[in-house]
């Protein structure tokens, strides 16, 4: 997947800095919390030397659910535009298809299949601009920006399936993944006031890792995720 469209989309908020200096601030800053289930996956580039790895992984791996939870501060810069930043926790990744397990025939109570989940956990610091449009109570919002992700750890979980039960085991590693990664984010949704100070937002958001997950490798891997952000914001 080409990162350029996402980069351009994420750079769009920069244009907001060109607003006239004499701004009116009809709205006050607000603080909010957001949660979002995410469906995550990755792109991997082609590589001559590691073509077998690319082929194997593309044949094996499928999207998997993650989530994000964050708190944010939104500062209006005009009637319709607000800049927003905060801090959050993101879990995103992907998994393998269930793989049938082959065993020597002499042992009983053996697992039938397994799935491996690759979860990457980050501290995220987004910086985005939100444009509100429409009139009335239900308003539309468009948001775009970046999210700086600080790598916390990578968790590889094996789910082993027996005939009548399932077991899980996980391992954690803290190296091998870029300590900082940059994600472009774009989203659009609706905003609705449930009281004079409190707004609820619902916005599908898409994030794409502009920088590779693991630097310096022939196979360049970029995480991406899409989800619906549910937010609650309270104006000061």
């Amino acid at each position: 997947m080409n990162a350029l469209p996402f980069l351009l989309a994420a750079l769009m908020p920069l244009t907001l800095a060109g607003q006239p200096a004499a701004r009116q601030r009809p709205h006050r800053a607000s603080i909010g919390i957001q949660v979002s289930p995410l469906l995550g996956y990755r792109t991997i580039g082609t590589s001559t030397v590691d073509q077998r790895v690319v082929t194997n992984r593309n044949g094996l791996e499928i999207p998997w659910w993650g989530y994000t939870a964050s708190i944010s501060l939104s500062v209006p810069v005009s009637k319709r535009i607000a800049l927003e930043s905060g801090v959050g926790y993101v879990s995103r990744g992907y998994q393998t298809r269930p793989q049938a397990l082959d065993w020597p025939g002499t042992v009983s109570d053996l697992p039938l299949s397994s799935t491996t989940r690759f979860g990457y956990h980050f501290l995220s610091i987004p910086g985005k601009a939100t444009y509100t449009f429409g009139t009335g109570k239900l308003r539309g919002i468009v948001e775009a920006g970046f999210s700086m992700n600080v790598f916390i750890d990578q968790r590889v979980t094996i789910i082993t399936r027996y005939a009548e039960r399932e077991t899980e085991s996980a391992s954690r590693k803290e190296v091998g993944v870029s300590r900082f990664s940059l994600f472009a984010l774009i989203g659009a949704g609706v905003c609705y006031p449930i009281s004079s100070r409190i707004n609820v937002t619902l916005a599908p958001v898409f994030q794409y890792g502009i920088t590779p997950l693991r630097p310096g490798l022939a196979v360049r891997e970029h995480l991406y995720s899409g989800g619906v952000t549910i937010g609650l914001a309270r104006r000061f």
């Binding site: 077998r52 042992v107 690759f118 094996i158 693991r214 490798l217 196979v219």
Partner: peptide, 14 residues
């Protein structure tokens, strides 16, 4: 086959 970028493979044994 030569691999330079790493790979995770499911392995099972008794």
């Amino acid at each position: 086959t030569l691999v330079t970028s790493g790979f995770t493979k499911t392995v099972n044994w008794v």
